[in-house]
Design a protein around this nucleic acid. Structure first.
Length: 346
DNA sequence: ATGACAGCGCATAACG
DNA sequence: CGTTATGCGC
DNA sequence: GTCAT
């Protein structure tokens, strides 16, 4: 019995391996998007495969992916994935899990130094074997060593339970709110969406003096390591390697930034698509007209959703499970049911 | 058939 | 040295 | 690789 979860894992694995192989980014994305669709599917994918229209009736499923998933459902195996794993060592995926090491770097380490495993990378980083590899300077090697150390410290635990993150949120937002430069401070990301499992924490701060806030944030006693600190954002690690990002934005951008960094990614992609069809564009700075670029929203989340013809959507619903359609402010409906069926809905 | 699919901030290495 | 290219992460 | 055109 192949579950939806099995299919999701398989599609994501294919995407990761294709990425290391250097495949077209949109092909990689297609597999990831198909995985998200299965994740959000309210029924068994086996039923969909057997039902009217088959797998290609799912959004993000074309002939190629439908065929592969069909193979998997029928036989419990996928020859395509097995061939891919024979070509690209799957142990490279563990390298990509290191912050700062992505698919390109994993491929580089594999190609230039024959490294496919974490232990090999660790040994090579300390023995000096990595020196001389193009694109890997002293700083990069140092960062890899630090990432390996950090991973060892926290025992490879990558995500935290919400209950463990709550006190970190309270503490950090409390300290930031005490800064006179910080006009508004809110946690965003999956924490704000009230997910049970949190990968990292995003804090958005509205301020007229971003650098002051970010420098103060990076210097907090809770911070064990500063990953980066620029003019608009800072990334740090607090207790045992938990990553916290701080974004400094203007008061006028605060709502757009909160919306953007609260996600989910799938929710944002769908909102962006809706914006485009309305002749608008949406990003972390606001909602803008495509022609002329005039800004029409951004100070509050309500403004942002309203500019897209939507009611404000509670963060915990922002998972691309139909919440956007449900939030449409349908003023056409006021004109009568007959009109609704004629006018294309945006 | 063919083009779009988001795009930007940051760090680092390579380049001139 | 300043500028540009690349990879990463979101 | 998928979707809209």
């Amino acid at each position: 019995m192949v579950t939806n979860e099995d299919v999701v894992r398989t599609l994501e694995r294919i995407a990761d391996l294709l990425e290391i192989r250097g495949e077209n980014v949109y092909k990689v994305r297609a597999y990831r998007q198909a995985a998200v669709q299965v994740e959000n599917l309210g029924e068994s994918i086996a039923d969909v495969a057997a039902g009217e229209g088959g797998l290609v009736s799912l959004a993000g499923f074309g002939p190629a992916i439908a065929e592969k998933v069909s193979d998997l459902l029928q036989s419990g195996r996928l020859a395509f994935l097995e061939e891919l794993e024979a070509e690209v060592p799957p142990t490279l995926l563990a390298l990509c899990a290191l912050p700062g090491v992505g698919p390109r770097t994993a491929a580089l380490l594999w190609r230039e130094a024959g490294i496919t495993r974490l232990e090999e990378l660790d040994a090579a980083a300390h023995s000096g074997t990595l020196q001389g590899i193009p694109r890997l300077g002293a700083k990069s090697i140092e960062r890899i060593v630090a990432a390996l150390d950090s991973q060892r410290d926290r025992g490879a635990k990558t995500r935290r339970a919400r209950a463990d993150v709550q006190p970190i949120v309270d503490e950090l937002t409390g300290v930031l709110r005490a800064l006179p430069e910080a006009a508004m401070v809110e946690a965003a990301g999956s924490f704000r969406r009230r997910r049970e499992s949190i990968g990292d924490l995003d804090i958005v701060v509205a301020t007229a003096t971003p650098s002051k806030v970010l420098v103060a944030f990076s210097a907090l006693p809770q911070v064990e390591r500063v990953l980066m600190c620029g003019d608009t954002k800072s990334s740090v690690e607090v207790a045992s390697g938990f990553q916290v990002d701080c974004r400094a934005v203007s008061v006028a951008q605060f709502g757009a930034a909160m919306q953007y960094f609260t996600g989910s990614q799938a929710h944002n992609v769908r909102l962006r698509g809706r914006a485009l069809r309305m002749g608008l564009t949406l990003n972390e700075y606001g909602v803008f007209r495509l022609d002329g670029g005039e800004r029409i929203a951004g100070a509050t989340e309500e403004d942002v959703y309203a500019a897209l013809g939507l009611r404000w959507i509670p963060p915990e619903q922002r998972e691309d499970r139909g919440e956007i359609e449900a939030a449409v402010i349908d003023d056409v409906a006021l004109a009568g049911a007959a009109v609704q069926t004629v006018l294309p809905r945006i």
